[in-house]
């Protein structure tokens, strides 16, 4: 990749912790990806915790054109994909004297064991 000269463009991504998602930071110039990696943390994350860093050569990123971005539009008629379309169940379950298993409830189940204090 050398013939492109010293100032090559890299995009920098990082995550704050092991459980955090990768997040875009900024771009930098460096002669190669090893050097880009060595520059990344101190240039963009001097004051925050970092658990991992990716550098990606910009020319390897397939971006959308303005026209392609128009393909991102969609109608707001898809409530069958969301809980919003099933809200009436709450009332139904109440009739059977049961609570609704909504997002809050389901996400709270986690991976923890129910009976931690077994002995």
């Amino acid at each position: 990749m050398g013939s492109e000269g010293f100032y090559q463009e890299f995009e920098v991504f990082s995550k704050r912790s092991d459980t955090a998602p990768m997040q875009y930071q900024f771009s930098l110039l460096a002669p190669n990806e090893e050097m880009a990696l060595v520059m990344a943390q101190e240039n963009f994350m001097r004051r925050e915790p970092v658990a991992d860093i990716w550098v990606v050569k910009r020319s390897n990123i397939r971006k959308m054109t303005r026209e392609e971005k128009e393909s991102l539009y969609r109608l707001d008629n898809k409530d069958y994909r969301n809980t919003k379309g099933y809200g009436y169940l709450k009332k139904k379950w109440r009739h059977y004297e049961q609570g609704m298993l909504d997002e809050k409830e389901i996400m709270s189940w986690g991976g923890k064991r129910n009976h931690d204090q077994h002995d």
Binding site: M1, G2, S3, G5, F6, P31, N32, M35
Partner: peptide
């Protein structure tokens, strides 16, 4: 320095 690293290594 910049010249040296402009080439592929």
């Amino acid at each position: 320095v910049r010249d040296a690293l402009s080439k592929e290594i």
